[in-house]
Write a protein that binds this DNA or RNA. Structure first.
Length: 399
DNA sequence: TCTGGGGTCCTAGGACCC
DNA sequence: TCTGGGGTCCTAGGACCC
């Protein structure tokens, strides 16, 4: 790895909200929701009422991502709530990353709206890094109509922290000689990977800024937070050698699918319908990326928001919807304590690339029976949409 | 009409084996 | 009969991210 790297972190400002704003303006809407107190929010009737993204005016009222729309409206009575459009977000995200990939061969997609770009060695092409970052930011704005922050730094963690500094529509650098001035005065909670619980522990020991963590003994950080403490201590000191891994060079570790029910489930029959639907979508996603799983899991959130999960190993890696569905059912039945259930989730873990595992002839024969059916179902769903095909148990109640 | 969904990584305890 | 101790696998739960 090159000693003097230059890494960009590109982060769309209020991504879901900006993207929806752009789309609405294109469709003739006159109000730009980025300029008023507004949020992208889920549907409260089906109990999905959380803030997914907020405008800067909404943020000034203290509205936070992840809180309920109920809370958000208490803080900001005039709040405009706009539904999300995930299909559109995926499209526009892809266009953004196509542009970044065009710019540099080493781009890592970190989420739908965030990525790292390795600028090392590109000076010859685009010039001095800060100037190049500024031009990239302007190009994104001119092309798509939304703004980004770009952080410029010698590694990923500092690029990320730089990108978080002041928003929106800005380029910030964060080199080692700038840590004391730009990073260290910040509250400890603003360091990447310091959540509620790490914050509590660090505050209890008088570590309330990133600088105090940076200057404390490494051993103290480890004593307080184990391996996570070491990670945080390194981040506070701007130490991070992790490479920018181009998307496509990394492999999936798990697939999961969960749903908050519009009404609590109170019987196994109701739950099984949901499990079947979840099994179909999650298995299809896994098959489309050519994986098999060796562990399956089920998660239950009860009406009081307590969470429980149960998992089991399977003898032979599988991608068979019917087989996996039956395991989900068994897991659920043994996990459920009879109380009303708010959310049901399923997961597929311990992934392996398809066909790189050995199975007995009997396993193979049993699985083969279902493979053709799954393949046909996947094809139909791809062509006509998720709801176009289901099993008999899912017909009940459909129009 | 208060609290989403999809991920990754880590830890701790028990089973089991030598 | 006073019960070491390491290693690995499996499972449940939790922290954190966007």
């Amino acid at each position: 790895m090159s000693k003097n790297r230059i890494i960009f972190h590109i982060d769309v400002n209020s991504a879901f909200l900006s993207w929806t704003a752009v789309k609405r303006l294109q469709e003739g809407e006159t109000v730009d929701i980025r300029t008023i107190p507004a949020v992208i929010g889920g549907d409260e009737k089906s109990r999905h009422g959380v803030v997914l993204a907020k405008s800067i005016p909404a943020q000034k009222f203290g509205v936070k991502t992840g809180e309920s729309l109920f809370e958000a409206r208490q803080k900001c009575p005039n709040l405009t709530v706009v539904p999300s459009d995930h299909g559109y977000y995926s499209e526009i995200s892809k266009k953004l990353f196509d542009m970044l990939n065009d710019y540099s061969p080493v781009v890592e997609q970190f989420s739908i709206d965030e990525g790292f770009l390795d600028y090392t060695g590109l000076e010859g092409l685009y010039g001095e890094p800060m100037k190049a970052a500024f031009e990239l930011k302007e190009r994104i704005k001119a092309t798509f109509g939304f703004t980004v922050n770009i952080g410029v730094a010698p590694n990923k963690i500092l690029a990320k922290m730089a990108g978080e500094l002041k928003k929106p529509d800005l380029v910030h650098s964060l080199f080692h000689h700038e840590l004391e001035e730009k990073l260290w005065p910040l509250p400890i909670r603003e360091l990447f990977m310091v959540g509620k619980s790490s914050e509590r522990v660090l505050l209890n020991h008088g570590i309330d800024t990133i600088g105090k963590l940076a200057k404390c003994d490494q051993e103290l950080a480890v004593k307080l937070l184990k391996s996570h403490g070491l990670t945080l201590w390194k981040y506070a000191n701007g130490i991070d050698n992790s490479p920018v891994v181009p998307s496509g060079n990394s492999s999936a570790k798990s697939f999961s699918n969960s749903t908050t029910l519009s009404q609590d489930a109170t019987s196994l029959e109701e739950a099984n319908l949901v499990l079947h639907r979840l099994a179909q979508t999650v298995c299809m996603r896994m098959r489309s990326e050519n994986y098999q799983c060796s562990t399956v899991s089920v998660q239950i959130k009860y009406a009081d928001f307590t969470l429980f999960s149960k998992q089991m190993k399977v003898k032979v890696p599988t991608d068979d919807t019917d087989y996996i569905y039956r395991m989900f059912k068994d897991l659920y039945a043994s996990l459920w304590n009879g109380r009303p259930v708010r959310l049901i989730g399923v997961g597929l873990n311990d992934l392996t690339e398809k066909d790189d595992s050995q199975m007995t002839i009997f396993d193979a024969m049993a699985q083969e029976k279902h493979k053709k059916l799954d393949a046909v179902c996947d094809k139909i769903r791809l062509q006509f949409g998720k709801g176009s095909i289901g099993f008999g148990d899912q017909l009940k109640g459909k129009k």
